[in-house]
Design a protein around this nucleic acid. Sequence first.
DNA 1: CGGGGGATTGACGTAGCTCAACCCGAGTGG
DNA 2: CCACTCGGGTTGAGCTACGTCAATCCCCCG
Lengths: 262, 262
Amino acid sequence: MPEGVEEEVMIDRRRSPVEPITVNPLQCTPIEVRRILAGAPFFRRLPAADVARIAAGFRQTHVAAGETIHRAGDPATRLCIVAAGMVKVARPTPDGQDVVIDILAPGEFFGSLAQLGDAVYAEDVTAQTATCLLTISTEEFQSLLERYPPVALATLEFVALRLRGAHETIEQLSAYPVEQRVAATLLKLANRLGRSEGSATLIEMPLSRQDLADMTGATVETISRVMSDLRRAGIVESGRRWISILDHERLLQVAGGENSQT
Amino acid sequence: MPEGVEEEVMIDRRRSPVEPITVNPLQCTPIEVRRILAGAPFFRRLPAADVARIAAGFRQTHVAAGETIHRAGDPATRLCIVAAGMVKVARPTPDGQDVVIDILAPGEFFGSLAQLGDAVYAEDVTAQTATCLLTISTEEFQSLLERYPPVALATLEFVALRLRGAHETIEQLSAYPVEQRVAATLLKLANRLGRSEGSATLIEMPLSRQDLADMTGATVETISRVMSDLRRAGIVESGRRWISILDHERLLQVAGGENSQT
DNA sequence: CGGGGGATTGACGTAGCTCAACCCGAGTGG
DNA sequence: CCACTCGGGTTGAGCTACGTCAATCCCCCG
C-alpha cells in the first residue's frame, strides 16, 4: 500500500488510534473548586468573600465516565454545577429513544432550578467523561437566589441564553435536513470544546455516532452516512468516539445549506 | 341529504360560520393596564404600591390583527408584555419558511430581556388578534430587575418554564411523527386558550393550517390531512381559522402515540 | 359577482428510517 | 500472547412518512 505523502498537515492518520481525548485527571481540589465557582457564570459578579461563603454550601461529587448522575423521573432535589468533565443531558422517550438536549462543559449547571412544576427531573444526566460535580439542594440554591440578587440576575441571563439556543435547535429540527443539523452541531461543539491541532480542530470529548444521532434527531445509520460524506469531502476526520474538523470554512457552508453537491 | 340527527350536542355545525372567535374589544384602559401588570407573573409578588410605580414606566401600544410588531433583525430595544390579545412569535428561515416558537397570551412577554448577544431580535412577532401591548425599554427593564429582586426571581421562573417547554418541543420534533405533534400542540393550545362549549373545547384564537404547520414543523398539506383524519375520527372539529376539540380523551391518546389505526 | 385567501385532496418523489450483514479495534480472560 | 467477544462503525437494499406540485373547492369580502 503506497502511503500517501502528506501534503500540508499529516492528516493521514485516519483511523489511527491517535485518540488525544484528554480525560481530565480530575484534580478537583477545594482550591480548584473555589476557583471554578468564582469563574462560573453564576457567581462571576460577586465579591470573592461572598463566593467563598457560597462555595461552602456546595458538596463535591465525583462520577466516573459513563455513569448516570440522575434519571428522568427521579425526585428533583439538587442543582449541580459541572466543575470538571463533560456531562450529557438527554430526555428519554417512551419508545426507548434518547433526545440529547445539551452537552455541558465546566461552569454550566443542570438539575432543578426551583420547584418548577412536578418535582421530578425530566432528563437523564450521564457523565460523558470522568466528572467532578458541585451540588446543592434546590432549597438552598433558592435561598442563594433570594439572598444574592446578582446571582439571580446571572442565572436569569444564563437561562435566557439557553432558551435562545433551544429556539435555534427547534428551528433546525423544523426546517433543515440532517446534514445541515449535523454540521451546525459539530460547529457548536468545536466552538465550546475544540482544541486546535495544526489547521484542524479536535473536539475534545468522546462522542459516538449514537450521541450525535441523539443530538440531531436522526439515526445512527444516517449519521454514519453523513459523516462518511463529510470525511470523503475532506471536511471532517473521525474515528471511534472522536471527531476532528479539518475544514471549518466548508463545514460552515454545509451548515448554511450550501450543499456542494457532495 | 339526510341531515344527521344530532345525538348529544349539536356538533353538526361543521363548516358552519359559527366563528365565535372573540376578538377582544380592546378595552385597554389605564386601570385595566394596572390590573394586568399586577396579575402578570412578573409582578405578582410585589406590593401594589410598587406595581403602580412600575406600571408608570410602561407605554401602551395597540396593534391591529395581522400587523407585525417587530421583525427578526430589528435592533432589540424593547421588552413587551401582552396586555390583551394573542401574539405569534416566529423565526424566519433563510428559505422563507417560518418556525413558530410560541403563541403568547395576555400576561406573557417577548422581546429582549437583556443585552444578550447581538442586540437584534431573532424572531418576527405578529399580532394574531387585535392586541394591546405594554412596552418598556430594555435598559429600563434591566434596571427594574436590579431594583426589584422579586421581579428578577419571577422572570427567572418564567424563563425556566419556557425552557422546559422548549425542551419538550425539541423532544417531539426529534422523535415523534407529525400526527402526535399536532395532537400535543392542540392540547397545549386548548389548555391555555380553550373555552368550553358543551362537551367540546373551542380554541379561542384564529389559527390557520399554516400556523399549525409552522408550529409543528410540517407543511400545510400534511396538517390538512392530519386534521381531516382527526375530524373523520370525531376527535376534532375545525373550519376556516378555527379549531375545536370534541374528544379530549382520544386526542390525548393520539398525542401519546396510541394511534387508533385511523 | 369576481377575486383571493384558506383549505382539501390526489399523484408522485425522496430524505431518511428500518433491517440486516459485515468490519474493525480494544479489552479481557484463559 | 492469543483468541474471543463486544461495542462502535460502515454500508447496502428496501420502505414509508412526509414533502412537493397541482387541481379544485368554498367562504368571505369588496
